[in-house]
Each structure stands twice: as C-alpha cells, then as structure tokens.
Design a protein around this nucleic acid. Structure first.
Length: 769
DNA sequence: CTGGGGTCCT
DNA sequence: AGGACCC
C-alpha cells in the first residue's frame, strides 16, 4: 500500500514567501502543466451530458467566482470610513475572524487570537463582529446585484458567489465583436490578441472576464464593495484561480493552465471539497500532495472511500469539476447562536434563549416565511473534543404559534417558542444535575411561505367559500396590486429574487413598511386560474416522477432555458410557477388542518387548561419532563393564554422588561412562572427521575449507491429547479437506479466495507464528465 | 484562550 | 441527530 506513495513527497518546495496575503497562500508554481487525464476505466463509461466532446473535459461553460475581499472588515469600513487607513480586526469572542489589509501587512491573519494579534500590532482597532446582521444584509445585496448578470447564482458563505454566465457569453459572442481579455491571465503568458481569438474557449473566457469586470464595477459603484473574481470553465477552477491576484483583482484561467494551477496547491487539503476529515484519511494512505492523489491507484481510493467519492476526488485533483452552479435562493434555515464561558442553570439558559429568539423573530419578520421546525443545539463543556460535541433536538412548531402572528403579539409568540426551547433543552440537559454549557443555538427550519392562511380560515368559517371563490378573490386583488405597479416591478426581478423577494429584499430594506409578505402573496397569486391548474398537474406529476423528466432532457435544453427567461416578462418563470403553486397547495391543506385544530382549541374548557399539555408540545415528551419544568411550561402557557384575551396585561409586563434593559430580556412570563410554580409546588411532590432515553436503535439502512443525474438530464437545467423538486427527482432516480446498479463491472473485491465514506460527492453533485 | 453562520448527506 | 463540508 505504501510503495507508490512517497515518490512525490517534496516536489512542491519552490515556495518563495507569500507577500501580504495571509489569506490563502499556496506556494509558487512547479513547471508541470501536462494535463493528464488519468481517467479510470469506470469513468470512461461516461454519459455525454449535454455537450459536444467525448473524452475531454467540458470546457463549454463560463463560471465566474466572486470573492469579496476581507468581507466583514470591508463592511465595517463602509460603515465607518475613518477605519479605512487603520489596521482593523473584526472580533468575535476571543479571536480576530478577519482583518483589513492594513492589519495584514502587520502580520495579523484570519482566525488569530486577540492577544496574539495585539502583540503583533498594538494599534489594531477591533470591532465586534458577533452580530452578523450588517454582514448578512450586505451579503444578500451582493448576491442580488450579481443576479442581474445571470439568474444562476450560487452563494457560498456570506462572501462568495458562483455565477454561471455561459448563456450570457453565448449571447454576446454571437453579436458583439471584440472580446478583449480583462484582468490577469493564468498562466501568465504573453498571448497575442490574434492568437487568443482563434480558440473558441479563449473567446468565451475573455468574454467572461469582461462580464466579471462589469460585475466588480457594479459591486463597487452600487455597494462600495471590492472583490476578486476568478473566471474559468468550472467552479473549482474559478474559485482557485480567483485567489491568484488578491485584493481587488481578477484572473482568468486558460484551459491549458489547469495542470499548473492545480500544481500550486500545497496539499489536497486546499482543494475545496476535501476537508480535514477526508484529508486525514488520505494522509493515512500516504497521500498529501495533489500529485499523490493524481497518481494514487483508483482501487486504493475506492477501498477507502467508495467508488463515487474516489472518482470525485480524482477528478477534482485534476481540476475536473462538472458540478453545476446551483441556484441558491432564500435560506433554508435561520439560526442564531451564542457561545460563552459557562451556562450552568436553566434560568440562565432561558435568558440566553430568549435573547436568541428575539433577534430571530426580527429576522423572520423580514423574511416573510414562517418556520415549521424548531431546533435547539447545545455544546457541553468537555475536555476532549471541544468542537463537534454539539447535541441537538428538534420539534415541529404547531401552526398556531405563527398562525396568528402579529407585531402586537410578538411577546406571546416568543414565550411559546421559549417553552418549546425549554422542552428541547431538557431533552439534552438534565437540569437537576450540574451542567456546564458553552454554546446554545436556536434554529428555525422548514421555512415556508405563509399563505393567506388567515383569510382562508376566516372564509372557511364565515363565508363558506368555495375554493374557486378564493381564487377569484385572489385574482381580483391581483388586479388592484398590478394597478399599483407593484407587480410590474416584481416581474423585472431576476429569477430567484422574484420568488423570494420578501426574503431577500427585506434584508436590504428592513423598514419595509411591514407588507413584505403581502408582496409575496401577490406573486403567489399572480397566476391566473388556468396557470394554477397547470401547476397542479405538474406538481402531481412530480410526485410520481416520470414524465417530468422530459422537461430536462438534453435536447430540450436550449428551448427550456430560454423559455424560462423569456417567460419572465410574464408573471412567473416556469420553475417559480411550480414552486409557488406547490406552496399554494400545501397552504390549502394546512389551512384546513389548522381550522380543525383551532376549533378544538377553542372548545377546550378554561378549567381544564392548566392540566392540559400545552398545544404545540408533544404530550409524550411533556410527560417525561421533570415536574418542575412541566409546571413552568404550564404556567407560561396559561399566562400567554391570558394575555391573549387581555392585552392590558402585556402592557404592564412591558414596563417590567424595560427595567431590565441591560440584562438580556427575560420574558415577563418567567416572573409569573415563579409565582404559579410556587403555588403548585405544594400540591405536587413527585420527584421524577429524569431518565434520558437516549436509545439509539441501530436501524439497518440499505446501502444505496450514490446517485448521479441520468444521462439525459441537463445539469444546468436541473440546477435551476426549486430545491424540493431536485430532491424529489434525485430520490426517484436513486430508487430506480439502485436496482439496476447491481450489474457489476467492477473488479473490486466484494468483501469491501461498503459504508463509512462520507461522500464529498454531495458538494460536487453532478459529476460524469 | 477557537466564530457564527450556512449547505447537504447518512 | 449527527456528520461532513463551505466561508
């Protein structure tokens, strides 16, 4: 196993010192730029996805990677321009998470301890960066600005975006004339302008470099942001080449420079997608340098990682990355966390969780959707493994919590959510024993657009409407709004910004006159009745997942791609239609469910209320809680029910919490909790030993080989689909392929342990060159 | 003396 | 629910 491994150990020491760029320094180059396509025989069973070539990598795309320079520091310098010429570090807790270039010249680096940084640079100005609000807002502004150049934008963290500009380039290459290459070229060659233009690939990339320059110009003039850009024919290379010239510059990778670029990486750890865990396992095999991986026998990698991951890794180390740019759209989760030295009491935890909930509620308000899942995560102090020892529990959020969500009733909502948090918290922490936490995270997930739930319910009870009536009302309302020119503006929005406008725009304009979700409704309803029916049919078809595929086959690609753009002059583009209609359907179901449960809630006798398990809390879970906690929750519940009926109560409470302005706002419900808890303590004496039932039933899962897109599916089209649909399709393909996959073309021994390889395939979804 | 977010897969 | 990955 180790005979082949050490051959290339020390080849990458060319390495002059890197200049002021502490960020990602891979050493200088080697001179190997032969592009070996060491394809395993498995890979040669390839599917010609959409493009031309047979054996070579697809170079027909043009991908721009935009990487904002020291993002947090830039945001702070924009907020306070006097910081520009000072060494600036952004501080989170004990570390400098990033710093501006003035500070970098002094040796300060990312993720450096405060003390260390201060020693290096005593004048270092530190700005706290634990609250990400401003960064998040700017981040979405950047993504939105990039969308004007192409709808296909994928976010990576707050400060990076991939943009697939292939279509834009194709359009320009036909019509326009002189594609001059803008910015740096990798490798740094002298290329005669005439030469460059002979090669179609070069023409495309040159055009891409112009678009990248326009993007950077736009970001600078509109937002004051500087960034780097990398232009290449795939995501991996675009990202890697962007780092070649660091602050505020751009670099285009010519296809013949791929080998050389990969050679600049010190180890395979610098390949995005190979994380610390995979890297360790590779080192076990004697693989560290990129060339080690390039030369590693495929069967060795397969034995350790499985066929698919092995294939992806070997593609990556050659600079091959067929993964599509995937439309990101609005976030899947909204979370907030705090870390600290010590949290050792439930009371303290509740205070912290209340603070987290309060800021989360602000963000939710801006988002316009409502969450249906709540998750609490804690980190317990432990000598071994300080990170990765997080535990989490999640539960559904009953729809009534956000069903009637008004600005006025926020305290009540927070109080109910806090109850849920406490329940989840107690599943992880035995509050009767000493404990020591160092982090709490609260996460809202399953974010879904809130429909005209309220209207539907009212109609359900009052007007006995038919669903047709509801729709007619919708379209009627639509008319008004269209007159108000709201929709017309919306229809000019780029693809996903349209479908998520309430989410994204509200980040930019937090003051948005509180109607952000109304605007979303406009779009949801913007289809005519006929369009809605069509969407229902499509949705139903997706469920059985057969004929939908014809929409995405390769031959339809151009048609379909342009269709979705040309249709954007109408109310919705095609994929948006499907998504919103799907939501519309689930809304109606939800509304009915809700109506039923609301009715039964209403009928519950006030007298039995205290003994009833609060709605929204799983009775089984509730009964497992220590009685003390049960009491508190019931007390909270009763209190919120009371305030529901009596608004003056919450008024007086308001003043109380203002007295505690400095401490994190403890919900007023807690003070009342104490009172009721004391009263009840006399009647209840049961001391429940809280056995945490952490049973881990080792369910035997059927190992399913990783799924790739079927050969007739165009990844670019697939990438634009709404997320739910991608998941559904992938699942159905996986189901179908797992049976047919047993045909064995492999000479690999059978006795391999099949499992246990965390697949990096997910990060580079569609492969198969 | 180690952030505060996110994504997807198993 | 946890684990990998990204920033």
């Amino acid at each position: 196993m180790s005979s082949w491994k050490r051959k290339y150990e020390e080849i990458d020491e060319d390495d002059d010192k890197e200049e002021e760029d502490a960020e990602e320094d891979w050493g200088a180059s080697m001179d190997d730029d032969s592009q070996k396509h060491n394809q395993s025989d498995k890979m040669s069973r390839r599917l010609s996805t959409s493009q031309h070539t047979s054996g070579e990598e697809d170079t027909s795309r043009v991908i721009v990677h935009i990487d904002v320079d020291c993002f947090y520091a830039q945001v702070e310098m924009i907020r306070d321009p006097t910081l520009r010429d000072k060494p600036l570090g952004i501080q989170q807790k004990n570390i400098v998470v990033t710093c501006n270039y003035v500070a970098r010249k002094r040796g300060v680096t990312k993720l450096m301890f405060i003390k260390q940084a201060k020693e290096l640079c005593q004048e270092l100005v530190l700005v706290k960066g634990e609250d990400l609000t401003h960064y998040r807002e700017m981040s979405y502004k950047i993504t939105e600005a990039l969308q004007k150049f192409s709808p296909l934008v994928e976010r990576l963290g707050f400060d990076e975006n991939f943009v697939d500009v292939t279509e834009t380039v194709h359009g320009r290459v036909k019509s326009a004339s002189s594609p001059q290459l803008n910015g740096h070229i990798f490798p740094e060659k002298k290329i005669e302008a005439g030469d460059l233009l002979k090669d179609e690939r070069h023409v495309r990339l040159a055009c891409g470099s112009q678009i990248a320059a326009e993007m950077r110009q736009t970001l600078h003039s509109e937002l004051g942001i500087t960034c780097c850009a990398g232009i290449a024919h795939n995501k991996l290379l675009a990202k890697l080449v962007a780092g070649q010239h660091k602050p505020n510059q751009q670099t285009t990778l010519l296809p013949e420079g791929v080998g050389q670029l990969m050679g600049t990486l010190k180890t395979v750890r610098n390949i995005p997608g190979i994380g610390s865990s995979t890297f360790k396992r590779l080192q076990t095999l004697g693989i560290s340098a990129v060339q080690d991986l390039q030369d590693a026998p495929a069967n060795v990698l397969q034995a350790e990682f499985g066929a698919q991951t092995a294939q992806v890794m070997q593609q990556l180390c050659h600079g091959v990355d067929p993964s599509p740019v995937i439309l990101t759209g609005p976030p899947q989760t909204i979370s907030d966390e705090d870390s600290f030295k010590k949290c050792a009491s439930l009371q303290n935890a509740k205070e912290r969780m209340t603070g987290l909930l309060q800021s989360l509620m602000k963000r939710l308000k801006g988002d316009g959707r409502i969450p249906h899942v709540l998750r609490v995560t804690v980190r317990k102090l432990s000598a071994t493994n300080k990170w990765t020892n997080r535990e989490s529990r999640q539960c559904a959020i009953h729809s009534h919590v956000f069903g009637t969500w008004d600005d006025n009733k926020e305290k009540e909502t927070i109080s109910q959510l806090l109850n849920l948090c406490v329940v989840l918290f107690c599943k992880m922490v035995d509050v009767n024993q000493p404990f020591h936490l160092t982090l709490i995270n609260i996460c809202f997930a399953k974010l879904e657009a809130r429909s005209k739930q309220l209207a539907s319910i009212k109609n359900f009870f009052q007007n006995e409407p038919t669903s047709t009536q509801t729709l007619e009302k919708s379209t009627h309302m639509l008319q008004h709004l269209e007159d108000a020119h709201i929709l017309k503006k919306a229809s000019q929005q780029p693809h996903w910004a349209k479908s998520s406008r309430s989410s994204i725009e509200s980040f930019f304009r937090p003051q948005q006159r509180s109607s952000s979700y109304l605007e979303f409704e406009n779009k949801t309803r913007s289809g005519t009745l006929e369009e809605t029916r069509t969407c229902r049919q499509i949705t139903a078809t997706v469920g059985s997942s057969t004929s939908v595929q014809s929409l995405f086959t390769t031959k339809d690609r151009d048609v379909e791609y342009h269709t979705s753009e040309s249709r954007s002059t109408e109310s919705c583009s095609s994929s948006t239609d499907i998504r919103t209609c799907k939501q519309g359907l689930s809304f109606q179901l939800l509304a009915q469910t809700h109506a039923v449960s609301s009715a039964s809630d209403t009928e519950a006798s006030p007298l039995s209320r205290v003994q009833t398990v609060p709605s929204g809390i799983d009775p089984d879970v509730f009964s497992e809680l220590p009685p003390e906690i049960q009491r508190e929750i019931c007390a909270n519940y009763q209190k919120t029910e009371d305030t529901d009926r009596n608004l003056s109560t919450s008024q007086s409470v308001d003043q109380e919490s203002q007295n505690n302005a400095e401490t994190p706002n403890v919900s007023d419900s807690m003070s009342q909790t104490v009172y009721i808890g004391e009263v009840e303590e006399m009647t209840s004496e049961v001391e429940n030993t809280h056995t945490s039932s952490c049973t881990k039933p080792a369910s035997v899962t059927v190992p399913v080989e990783g799924t790739v897109l079927p050969p007739d599916i165009d990844p670019a089209v697939f990438a634009q689909l709404p997320r739910e649909m991608r998941v559904e399709l992938l699942n159905s393909w996986r189901r179908n392929s797992s049976s047919a996959d047993s045909t064995q073309t492999d000479r690999k021994p059978q006795s391999r342990k099949t499992g246990k390889s965390p697949s990096i395939a997910k990060y580079f979804k569609k492969m198969n060159s």
